[in-house]
Amino acid sequence: MCLPAAAATQSNDGESMTLASHYSYWMTILLMITGLYIVVARGNLIKKLIGLGIFQTSVYLIYIAPGKLIGGTAPIVAEGFKIYSNPLPHVLILTAIVVGVATLALGLALVVRIYEEYGSIEEDTILEVERRDEADQEKAGDRS
């Protein structure tokens, strides 16, 4: 739980760049590169999708965090509140989450189909099967 703590302790000192003022960006980037690392370094397709999910949540944060105003409240207009956090990124990310889960389901469907075709969800095994098939086809082509 890094970000709320950061939000609570930060001072609103405007111009000068401090560790606190950009902490939220850096945490987001940490999450982002972890997701990227999982996607690149892991051969398992489901693990890759989880990495993409982490990457995606970091994008949510990079949109939402700049919209927060300290002392502000959620953007539901009511009597007695003057400062509201920025509603626009909320709208964009709200739809992005639902679209994200729909595309995630599409990705998982593709993984299931790949498993049925190749018998594995490991990248290198799939490539091996692919290479073997190609070699078989070449052999068949030579014969004909």
């Binding site: 739980m1 970000l3 709320p4 939000a7 489901i46 999708l49 989880i50 999910g53 949540t57 949510y60 944060l61 939402i64 965090a65 919209g67 927060k68 105003l69 502000g72 409240t73 959620a74 953007p75 539901i76 956090s85 990124p89 909320h90 990310i93 709200l94 989450i97 639902v98 994200g100 889960v101 995630l104 389901a105 998982l108 993984v111 299931v112």
Partner: peptide, 30 residues
């Protein structure tokens, strides 16, 4: 919870229902 702290209540509600609910079920099914 982080999103609630950042005042994005609508987004937090969606993330809790989608991320912790539906996508976990889909991952388990896959």
């Amino acid at each position: 919870t982080v999103l609630v702290a950042l005042d994005a209540v609508d987004v937090a509600m969606t993330e809790a229902a989608v991320g912790a609910g539906i996508s976990t079920v889909l991952f388990l099914a896959a």
